[in-house]
Computed example of a mutant assay.
Amino acid sequence: MGRTAASSRPQRGDDGSHSPLPSQPDASPLPDHLENLAGRARGYLEAASSANTRRAYSADWKHFSTWCRRQGLGIIPPSPQTVGLYITACASGDSGGKPNSVSTIERRLSSLSWNYSQRGLSLDRKDRHIATIMAGVRNTHAVPPRQKEAILLGDLVAMLETLDRGSLRGLRDRAILLVGFAGGLRRSEIVGLDIGRDQTEDGRGWIEIFEEGLLVTLRGKTGWREVEIGRGSTATTCPVTALETWLKFARIAHGPLFRRVTGKGRQVGAERLKDQEVARLVKRTALAAGVRGDLPEREREKKFSGHSLRAGLASSAEVDERYVQKQLGHASAEMTRKYQRRRDRFRINLTKASGL
């Protein structure tokens, strides 16, 4: 006898969430070897996107599911009309809380598409109920993008001076700032590094220290790549020296590279540092160093993040653009130019070139 319609539908929780590989209590148990394959498949599904992306997609789906439940609307099957109303509610602030920005709404829409696809369903984002409303939202609410401030060389040196050189936490934070800047690394790439290859299950790369510098092998958004971090001209600003000092005094020889410091700064734990800590470190030291002191305090707090280090390298390195693109792991030069804050500003004066 064929399966009923009810048993063929994906299993769904109260918030509309369910696994891409749903359990089927009405079906016969899988053989052990297939259960193992199913477990591995779930692992591969998780590895297909970053933890931050999965958290955002899960939160957006929950937000959408909650809104639909409050309005008495169903979420399965996907309805362009329902999604159109949801977009309108997000833009107007009727979905709970303040109105969402255009970028937040676009992310929520991407999240819905991804979540539906994981359930074997398709949301047509080109449907007029979605596309036309999104066009109207962009025309009405779109604002220029807010880019994070680039940490330039002088800024970085001032930030380093705010750190305690005599503490383990200070040594660690110094290494994070210098390696993150010189490598043009994302915050997730910084904390995802291990001392060596294949040392942890959650590692996203490893380091090798040579006489000439540091070789970082990592898995980023565009796949595996190698990043070369050469030794600096002085020991005080050399990222390799800072890293070697941290490893020596922290007595780390295996596992995660950057870890939590506990016991009032006297002990190094085994736990890998969270990527949010990199963003907090950049923000805290930039504010303490007085970077962009020309701005009001409240505005300054919004200017800095982990990406400020990445943008700082792109803006500071006076080399051919293709080398910066390779270091940052960008697929296009256009993306690299978005990171080059102020580097080429007014370098070419077309006013004078035109004869004015």
Results as ranks from 00 to 15, higher is better:
Arg108Leu: 06
Asp124Cys: 15
Arg125Ser: 06
Leu121Lys: 09
Ala135Ile: 00
Lys126Ile: 02
Arg138Gln: 03
Ser111Asp: 15
Ser111Thr: 12
Ala142Gln: 07
Met134Trp: 02
Lys126Gly: 09
Leu123Gln: 10
Ser117Gln: 12
Arg125Asp: 13
Lys126Leu: 09
Leu121Met: 12
Ala135Asp: 02
Arg138Cys: 01
Asn115Gly: 15
Ser122Ala: 05
Arg108Met: 09
Ile130Glu: 03
Arg108Pro: 09
Leu123Trp: 10
Arg138Lys: 08
Trp114His: 08
Asn139Glu: 11
Ala135Gln: 06
Asp127Leu: 01
Leu112Gln: 11
His129Ser: 10
Leu109Cys: 10
Ile133Met: 09
Arg108Trp: 09
Thr140Ala: 12
Trp114Thr: 09
Ile133Pro: 07
Pro144Trp: 08
Lys126Ala: 14
Ser117Ile: 04
Ser113Met: 13
His141Thr: 07
Ala135Cys: 01
Ser122Pro: 04
Thr132Glu: 13
Leu109Tyr: 11
Arg125Pro: 03
Ile130His: 05
Ala135Tyr: 00
Ser122Arg: 06
Gly120Ser: 02
Ser117Thr: 09
Leu123Arg: 08
Ala131Met: 06
Ile133Ala: 04
Ser122Gly: 03
Leu123Thr: 13
Ser111Asn: 15
Asp127His: 14
Leu112Pro: 02
Pro144Lys: 09
Leu109Met: 12
Pro144Gln: 08
Val137Cys: 01
Arg119Gly: 14
Leu123His: 11
Val143Glu: 05
Tyr116Leu: 06
Asp124Pro: 15
Val137Ile: 08
Asn139Trp: 01
Ser122Glu: 03
Arg119Leu: 13
Arg125Lys: 12
Gln118Cys: 05
Lys126Asp: 15
Ala135Ser: 12
Arg119Trp: 11
Val143Gly: 01
Ser110Tyr: 09
Arg108Asn: 12
His141Ser: 12
Ile130Tyr: 04
Ala142Glu: 07
Pro144His: 08
Ser117Trp: 07
Gln118Glu: 05
Ile130Ala: 04
Asp124Gln: 14
Lys126Tyr: 04
Val143Leu: 03
Arg138Val: 03
Arg128Glu: 08
Leu123Asn: 14
Gly136Phe: 04
Thr140Trp: 07
Thr132Trp: 15
Ser117Leu: 10
Lys126Asn: 14
Leu123Phe: 15
Gly136Trp: 05
Trp114Val: 06
Asn139Arg: 14
Arg138Tyr: 00
Thr132Asp: 12
Ile130Asn: 04
Met134Asp: 02
Ala142Tyr: 05
Pro144Ala: 12
Thr132His: 15
Tyr116Lys: 07
Val143Asp: 01
His141Arg: 13
Val137Gly: 00
Trp114Met: 05
Gly136Pro: 02
Ser111Trp: 01
Pro144Tyr: 08
Gly120Phe: 01
Gly120Lys: 01
Thr140Tyr: 05
Ser122Trp: 01
Asn115Ser: 15
Ser117Tyr: 06
Leu109Asp: 06
Thr140Ser: 10
Tyr116Met: 06
